[in-house]
Simulated scan of single mutants.
Amino acid sequence: MTELGTVMIRGVVGILFMLLLARLMGKKHIQNMTFYEYIVGISIGSISAELTFGTEVRMSNFLLGMLIWAIIPVIISKIELKSFRFRVLTEGHPTILIKNGKILEKNLKKENLTVDELMINLRQKDVFKLSDVETAIMEKSGQVSVMKKSELQPLTPKDIGEVVEQEREPRLVIIDGNIMERSLHEYGYTKEWLLGEITKQGAKNFSDVFAAQIDSMGNVYVDLYNDTLKMPQIKQKLLVAANIKQLQANLVNFSLQTENKNAKEMYNGYAKQMDKLLDDMSGYLKE
Rank of each mutant, 00 (worst) to 15 (best):
L285Q: 06
Y38R: 09
K129D: 12
S43I: 14
M1V: 13
G92D: 08
S131A: 10
V222G: 00
Q213H: 01
K27P: 12
V115C: 00
V127H: 03
V252D: 11
I103E: 06
T228K: 15
I79V: 15
D275H: 11
E287L: 15
K272H: 04
G54H: 03
V115F: 02
G41D: 02
E37D: 14
L251D: 08
K191G: 02
V133A: 00
Q153K: 13
G45R: 07
I120D: 11
E162P: 00
N100L: 01
N205E: 14
S46A: 13
N260W: 06
M18T: 12
V144E: 00
Y221M: 13
I15H: 05
M18E: 01
I44S: 04
P73S: 12
L97A: 00
S60H: 08
A22P: 03
F35T: 07
M138D: 00
V209D: 00
I174V: 10
A136F: 02
P73F: 15
I96L: 14
K109T: 06
V164E: 06
V115M: 08
S183W: 05
E56K: 14
M59G: 10
G14N: 09
I71E: 05
I198L: 14
G101P: 05
K200M: 10
G177L: 01
T199R: 15
Q233T: 15
T199K: 15
M231K: 15
K237Y: 13
I120C: 03
T52C: 10
E37W: 12
Q124T: 02
I72C: 14
Q124V: 01
K264W: 10
I72K: 07
E167F: 02
S282G: 02
E91G: 04
F84I: 10
T95W: 01
K149D: 01
F62Q: 11
V144T: 01
L20F: 14
F254N: 13
M147Q: 08
N107P: 03
E151Y: 06
K158C: 05
D132V: 07
S150H: 05
G196S: 11
G218D: 01
E151I: 08
G54Y: 04
N260Y: 11
Y270K: 14
V222D: 00
L239S: 14
L195R: 07
P73R: 08
A49Y: 08
E139N: 00
V173Y: 11
D280M: 13
R87G: 09
L155S: 03
G218V: 08
F84Y: 10
Q248F: 08
Q124L: 14
L155D: 03
L24G: 05
T199N: 12
T90Q: 09
E3H: 07
I76R: 07
V209H: 00
L89K: 07
Y187R: 12
F210V: 09
N268E: 13
L24V: 13
G92F: 10
E105T: 11
F62N: 09
A49K: 03
T199F: 02
R87K: 13
V74Y: 12
E151N: 11
S145M: 06
R171C: 04
M119F: 11
A136R: 06
N226T: 03
N243C: 07
E37H: 09
N205C: 12
G202Y: 07
S207H: 13
L104T: 05
M119Y: 02
L19E: 03
A263C: 06
T114D: 01
Q213Y: 02
T114R: 05
L97V: 01
I174A: 04
N253L: 14
L113Q: 01
T95I: 15
L130E: 04
H185P: 01
D126C: 04
K158E: 10
E192I: 09
I47E: 03
